[in-house]
Amino acid sequence: MSLTADQIRQVAHLARLELKPEMTDAYARQLSNIMAMVGQLSNADTANVSPMAHPLDMHQRLRLDAVTAPNLREAFQAIAPATENGLYLVPKVIE
């Protein structure tokens, strides 16, 4: 499995990562090596094996429907990059 620089750019876009242009080729090489190593997985016989998402055979615990979280807007927004009137600000979203 080998990844081209174009595929790297595509994946980087999906992950919203701006890559330094000079890194693209190095990433393509490194990710190709990693995917080659990962490719060993296809040799495993997994017919009739159920996928394991989780190490524990437990099920979801349920929370009581109660309001327990206080309003901490000030504390949360003290570390925000940009806020105004209690809103988080981002450059205009065009729809």
Binding site: L3, L17, A44, T46
Partner: peptide, 27 residues
């Protein structure tokens, strides 16, 4: 690198071959 690998193995067309297969081998 890890974000890109993860994005790649979860993306359309690769999920079964990588992510699902890895979960089976995990078993």
């Amino acid at each position: 690198r890890r974000i890109m690998i993860g994005t790649y193995v979860l993306s359309h067309g690769y999920y079964d071959a990588y992510y699902l297969q890895a979960q089976k081998v995990r078993r």
